[in-house]
């Protein structure tokens, strides 16, 4: 309200309230000759207002509303109840009816979802792994549901297409499998998780022995190496002090039960050896692994986060959908 208004209404027209413009009384507020009148609220507006008030009363009959002491009104019994089925701890299914509330509504939503997907999940659960892959229609479901599950849970480590990150999480699309390539082995990895462990060798063998072991490891996959040192390294590999062979096998191809890497292929997880240009740098990277050991590779266990049928579906997705399984 400006200064002007005050002078206008107060000094010039003290009794302007009574003055009428087009038959409607003025409030006496006038700005630059624009008058504020005391028109009634439009009738439709007033009715809409009363209707909202009536609506709240109807709402109280249908939904939880008023607190009373240590409890609250839950709507008129039977007027707006919800019926759902729930699985109990002992595995039985029970049907229950409750007053309307979000958590019962949620149970119904989940019931409906399960009903819609049930025939597919039942089929996945009942079909042996290799037959799922034969069934084109079922595979369509596996691929679309698997993709969602994989994006939500696995992609942050294994990446969206399953290609992995060097130094972090393995590629699931190649045909190199640390823990085995069969459906059952992959399923077991997802259910229980894994953490590959290799001890640090810097206090077990000498620096020279680490160097020659590294040359030997490089020789296995055809990387540049010093042949004489690699020959010594082969001895270290098979010696009982270092006992590399105990985990990686005498042929250095790795053991599925331990997740020990196959050192003879060109696939590396913990150092990007094939991409490193300089032979000295390659040697340094391998020495670091041997000296420092490994226990960073944590694949979490999913048995508490995902249901068995989801895990089975993911197993097929990883094996078939990502294209790496054998």
């Amino acid at each position: 309200m400006s200064q002007e208004t005050k002078t206008n209404s107060a000094s010039n027209e003290p009794k302007s309230r009574a003055r009428k413009a087009g038959g409607v009384p003025s409030t006496g507020h006038s700005w630059d000759g624009i008058e504020e009148l005391t028109n009634q609220l439009p009738r439709w507006w007033v009715w809409a207002f009363y209707l909202t008030a009536i609506f709240t009363v109807v709402y109280w009959l249908f939904y939880p509303a008023w607190p009373i002491g240590s409890t609250y009104t839950k709507g008129v019994p039977g007027l707006n109840s919800i019926t759902y089925t729930a699985t109990q701890v002992d595995g039985t299914q029970v049907e229950k009816t409750t007053h309307w509330n979000m958590r019962s509504k949620f149970m119904v939503e989940m019931n409906e979802l399960h009903a819609a997907q049930k025939q597919w999940f039942d089929k996945v659960a009942a079909t042996p792994f290799d037959q799922i892959a034969q069934d084109a229609e079922l595979m369509q479901f596996v691929t679309s549901a698997g993709k969602t599950l994989f994006s939500d849970n696995c992609a942050p480590c294994h990446q969206a297409g399953g290609q992995g990150v060097i130094g972090f999480a393995p590629n699931l699309t190649d045909d190199h499998w640390q823990y085995g390539s069969s459906y059952a082995q992959i399923q077991d990895v997802i259910v229980h998780g894994r953490q590959g462990y290799m001890p640090p060798f810097k206090e077990i063998i000498t620096d020279d022995e680490i160097t020659s072991a590294a040359h030997y490891v490089l020789s296995l996959s055809g990387e540049p190496h010093d042949a004489a040192s690699a020959e010594l390294g082969a001895k270290v590999f098979k010696s009982d002090t270092a006992a590399c062979y105990a985990c990686h096998g005498a042929d250095a191809k790795g053991k599925e039960g331990l997740g020990s890497a196959n050192l003879t292929d060109k696939i590396w997880l913990w150092a990007n050896i094939p991409e490193i240009e300089d032979a000295d740098e390659k040697l340094k990277a391998v020495k670091n692994i041997i000296a420092g050991g490994l226990n960073r590779g944590v694949m979490p266990a999913w048995e508490d986060r995902l249901k068995p049928d989801q895990i089975k579906l993911l197993t097929v997705y990883v094996h078939q959908g990502l294209g790496g399984g054998k």
Binding site: P64, Y84, A86, T87, Q88, V89, K96, T98, N101, M102, R103, S104, M107, D304
Partner: peptide
């Protein structure tokens, strides 16, 4: 949550 029925928490609403 494995220790509770699917709908155990419904009764608190």
């Amino acid at each position: 949550f494995k220790k509770y029925d699917d709908d155990y928490f419904v009764k608190f609403r």
